[in-house]
């Protein structure tokens, strides 16, 4: 099980306690709609259980639309990213999701001289 940083848990607690479940963030966010829970419930569950299924934080698009429309400007994306970082830490530097291996390969290829080039003007 992932050992979450205190700052990650505090962030989650803050959302769980501050979110008034007005659902404004859910109007345009397909991800939150599919979770079927308001951020208050979702993060309360996380704090209570001390864990969350990896697919949940990895499905957030980290787009910050929720923050713009939220009356409390809650930073859901930052909380989901912090959870991802802790999951990676617990998994020896790799994401816990198998389907993400391709992204790591993609990043490796992106470093190849074949595709990189700098020219001082």
């Amino acid at each position: 099980m992932t050992n979450y940083r205190k700052s990650t848990v505090d962030q989650a607690k803050f959302i769980a306690e501050t979110c008034s479940s007005c659902r404004r963030c859910m109007r345009q966010c397909v991800f939150l709609q599919q979770q079927g829970q308001t951020p208050a419930q979702l993060f309360e569950d996380f704090v209570e259980k001390g864990d969350i299924a990896p697919l949940v934080p990895y499905s957030c698009q980290l787009c910050h639309q929720c923050t713009v429309v939220c009356p409390h400007h809650l930073e859901l994306a930052d909380a989901f990213l912090a959870i991802r970082q802790d999951m990676v830490q617990a998994n020896h530097g790799h994401t816990p999701l198998k389907q993400m291996k391709g992204v790591e390969l993609h990043q490796l290829l992106s470093r190849f001289a074949l595709f990189c080039y700098t020219k001082k003007g």
Partner: peptide, 30 residues
């Protein structure tokens, strides 16, 4: 280059995918 003849070219990855993955150490290296 018509406006900035001294323009340099940077053809590299910023590493954002690694940042999104939560692989912070690898992102910082990139």
């Amino acid at each position: 280059k018509e406006f900035y003849p001294e323009l340099s070219i940077i053809q590299e990855c910023c590493g954002k995918p690694l940042y999104y993955l939560g692989e912070q150490a690898k992102f910082e290296r990139q």
